[in-house]
């Protein structure tokens, strides 16, 4: 297994080289002049030129690329002009915020979608199957920014049940001491239950928004995969042998149906990271998606490059983990295959 993992790791290298080259070129081709943007309201041509120089934008493309590679080797991803901080620091502080939100949403949707999918498959054609169909159709057809705004309007503005959508913590709470960057974990480590509660309260609406969106593919895949397994011969044998239906469904059918569900989870996770951008905007979540979009609008190259690089690394790691999980879930799957 170690050899297989290493072999798999080697295939990552060309991908990463490709990502570095493409992001560099892509951000240079985009329209916009950051020097003019950051020269300020009363700048003249001379001061714009001065800023262009300090940003290294006056050099030729190959020179800029070499400079970029050199910085990259030293772990220097440049400065984000929009917040004025080093990109590496920004990504390090924002990635946990996005990950906490995405993982909460994913957990929430798994908790609902998997049982829903199983029940829909077991009781095919019943009311629960129809419910599953309605929920999944609603989930895919309602865009996240719409559900986000709707939730804020109903649960915060009209009913006042949810706390104000002001980010990871309400205005008067203080972030827990930094350990993992996940406020849920850090607050528990610090034994600060008030902050934990405040974090959960702030998470509920955005996580539900994203969970609704993620429900559909997971529930549909669970249902389809369960249906095909339930109609296979070993299940018929199990039933014929007189095993109770609970054992048949959960132990034999579901475990065999998990493989496509795990693949879908991986896809949904990467999908959610993308959908984050809009949810982060609506809920003032200081995540990585809104940061990258902001940078793109301002033609701020460094954060965009850093973001794409971080995302590429994340996807590669995710795919690796899913590949490895396959082997563990189903012994028939081998990485070499």
């Amino acid at each position: 297994m170690l050899r297989a993992t290493l072999k798999r790791l080697v295939t990552i290298v060309p991908t990463l080289i490709g990502v570095v080259v493409v992001t560099f070129l892509l951000t240079r081709v985009l329209p916009g002049d950051p020097a003019a943007y950051f020269a300020g309201p009363t700048a003249d041509a001379a001061s714009i030129e001065q800023i262009r120089k300090s940003l290294g934008l006056d050099q030729s493309l190959p020179q800029q690329f070499l400079r970029y590679l050199g910085d990259l080797a030293r772990g220097d991803l440049g400065n984000a002009l929009s917040t004025g901080q080093p990109v590496l620091k920004e990504i390090a502080s924002r990635l946990p915020a996005s990950a906490e939100l995405t993982l909460s949403a994913l957990a929430l949707s798994i908790l609902i979608a998997v049982p829903l999918g199983i029940l829909a498959a077991v009781k095919e054609g019943s009311w629960i199957d129809h419910l599953c169909r309605v929920v999944t159709t609603a989930g895919v057809s309602l865009p996240v920014f719409f559900t986000g705004v709707l939730f804020v309007c109903i649960f915060y503005y009209r009913l006042g049940w949810a706390p104000a959508p002001v980010g990871r913590l309400d205005l008067y709470s203080v972030a827990p001491p930094h350990v993992t960057g996940f406020f849920l974990i850090d607050s528990l480590l610090a034994g600060d239950f008030d902050t934990f509660r405040a974090t959960v309260a702030q998470l509920i609406l955005p996580a539900s928004t994203m969970a609704l969106f993620a429900l559909a593919p997971i529930a549909r895949m669970t249902r389809a995969s369960m249906l095909s397994v339930l109609s296979s011969e070993f299940i018929r044998t199990a039933r014929a042998s007189g095993l109770n239906s609970r054992t048949v469904i959960l132990r034999y059918a579901f475990r065999n149906a998990m493989l496509p569900v795990v693949t879908t989870l991986g896809m949904v996770f990467s999908f959610l990271l993308g959908a984050n951008v809009l949810v982060e905007k609506v809920f003032a979540w200081p995540g990585i998606g809104s940061f990258a979009v902001e940078a793109l609008i301002q033609s701020d190259y460094a954060p965009v490059q850093g973001f794409v690089l971080a995302m590429a690394l994340l996807y590669v790691a995710l795919n690796l983990m899913i590949d490895l999980a396959y082997g563990v879930i189903d012994p028939r799957v081998r990485l070499e295959a």
């Binding site: 329209p31 002049d33 003019a36 943007y37 041509a45 609008i297 033609s299």
Partner: peptide, 11 residues
Amino acid sequence: IPGANWRGQMA
């Protein structure tokens, strides 16, 4: 004109 480009176009 994107915000980032506006000042440049003005100049």
